[in-house]
Amino acid sequence: MNPYDKAHELARALTDSEELTALLEAKRLVEQDPNDKLLMESFRQKQMEMSTYQMQGTEPSKELTEEWTKLVTEVSGKPNLAQYLEAEGRVGQLMQDINRILAAPFEELNDSDQG
């Protein structure tokens, strides 16, 4: 059994998966509406700013927090954007699950390092 062949098989399965298909369709819908696309770009930018604060262990300003809250509410109220983020979350969960499965054969290596 060749791991590379299985990796290519997995890539094909992901391409055909319900999760990725739904994400691509949701992305297409967002990109069709210039307002939705612009709002999603603003959301991503603000999301990165908020993540930076979180990674640094610092609190964002009250103004930034209020902007983020308002943006999240606005995005949540747009069906195409909410659908896109939901589909993105499902794909993210799928990838986390796959990574966990792929890491399992290497757990013994990690266990022996600690003992």
Rank of each mutant, 00 (worst) to 15 (best):
Q56W: 00
L24W: 06
V91A: 01
A13M: 11
L109Q: 11
E88D: 12
M95C: 06
D5Y: 06
D97F: 00
G89M: 05
E66A: 13
Y53D: 04
R12D: 15
S51T: 09
R12L: 14
M48W: 08
E49F: 01
A22E: 12
R100S: 10
L24C: 08
E88L: 10
P34Q: 05
R44G: 03
E49G: 04
E67F: 01
E63G: 03
G89I: 05
E74F: 00
L29Q: 12
M1T: 11
T73N: 15
R12Q: 14
S42N: 15
N80D: 12
L85H: 05
P105E: 06
N110Q: 14
K62D: 12
I98Y: 00
F106E: 06
K78Q: 14
L81K: 05
A104K: 14
Q93H: 05
A103I: 01
Q54T: 02
A11C: 13
D33A: 03
L24T: 04
Q114D: 13
G92F: 00
Q96G: 10
E63Y: 01
A22D: 09
N80Q: 13
E41M: 09
L94W: 01
I98P: 07
L94Q: 10
M55F: 10
Q93M: 09
Q114K: 13
S17E: 07
L85Q: 10
A82Y: 02
G77S: 06
Y53C: 10
L71P: 08
T73M: 14
L38K: 15
E63M: 09
E49M: 13
Y4K: 14
R90V: 13
T65K: 14
E19N: 06
I98M: 10
N99M: 08
N99L: 05
F106L: 14
V30K: 00
L39N: 01
I101P: 05
L94G: 08
A26D: 00
G92H: 02
L64V: 03
P34E: 07
A26I: 01
D16V: 06
L10F: 04
D36P: 01
Q45C: 02
Y53K: 06
V75L: 07
A22V: 04
L29M: 11
E63R: 09
T58G: 03
V75A: 08
R28M: 06
E31K: 10
Q45K: 14
D36N: 13
G77D: 05
